[in-house]
Amino acid sequence: MEKEEELFVPRLVTTEEIFAPGHRACIGCGEALAVRHVCKALGKNVIIVTATGCIEIISSLLPQTSWQVPWIHTLFENSASVMSGIESAYKARVRKGKIPDKGVKFVGFAGDGGTSDIGIQALSGAMERAHDFLYVCYDNEAYMNTGIQRSSSTPYSAWTTTAPVGKKSIGQATWKKNMPEIAVAHRIPYVATACPSYPFDLMDKVKRGAEIEGPAYVHILSPCPTGWRYPPNLTIEIGRLAVETGVFPLYEVIDGEYRLSFDFPELKPVREYMKEQRRFRHLTEDIVEKIQARVEEEYLKLREKAGVK
């Protein structure tokens, strides 16, 4: 191999696949890609707890599993509680000298429904009790595995099967719940947002979150070709546009201090993000303008918090 080829960043990433191929994710799944990146960043010394959701059904079709690490599936609502229990039991056994401390990391995975709707009280409790864990939310903006039902994470005016489009409905009638801000409000040491379109940024954030003592929360936007209604080869492109238009800004909050991972002096119009997705195709110009105004307002607030002029 020539010298300059070694400088390409993807070559520096570990080739070990902890999330084994052969999983049953849809073609072009952004979530499976995000899990792959997260697992690469975490390494093998982890225990993973997964709430019900896409990740669980694609990775663990009995009697097979895609996981190369200890993994447990729990219900929609209690991934954070199960994770706290495992972490406490591990600590207790180490304290009593029954097992050596190998520095195991505890990681919870859940979708947006398992995080911002059904699992929020368990997660809030685990954050408040300050267990040492990393919680990763895969946000594909609806309940995709059961058939694209709306969640509180679905963006305003998006079509879903339970927020249909018609004469009196424009799809989802409410704005997306800002889950990372709810995590920040718990004053935990680490909160970040990430997207698999920026894999190295994502891996850095996951590593940082796992290393920090105390609760850490990483919110990952994972584009879903099935539910968002776009061709599967555009997964990375859509994720990138979400960041570049300001719909899903990437930032970290370390001990309450905001830092923008990518800052764009000029945001692209949200129309560009929406035009490839059929869940937004019914939108009229005035609704797009309304969304544009909201996105700009939120982005400005975020820049203010990060201290960027």
């Binding site: 599993t65 190369q68 690490v69």
Partner: peptide
């Protein structure tokens, strides 16, 4: 499931 990564036998 006692065999890690056993889904790899499945031909996607």
């Amino acid at each position: 499931v006692t065999e890690p990564g056993s889904a790899s036998v499945y031909k996607t």
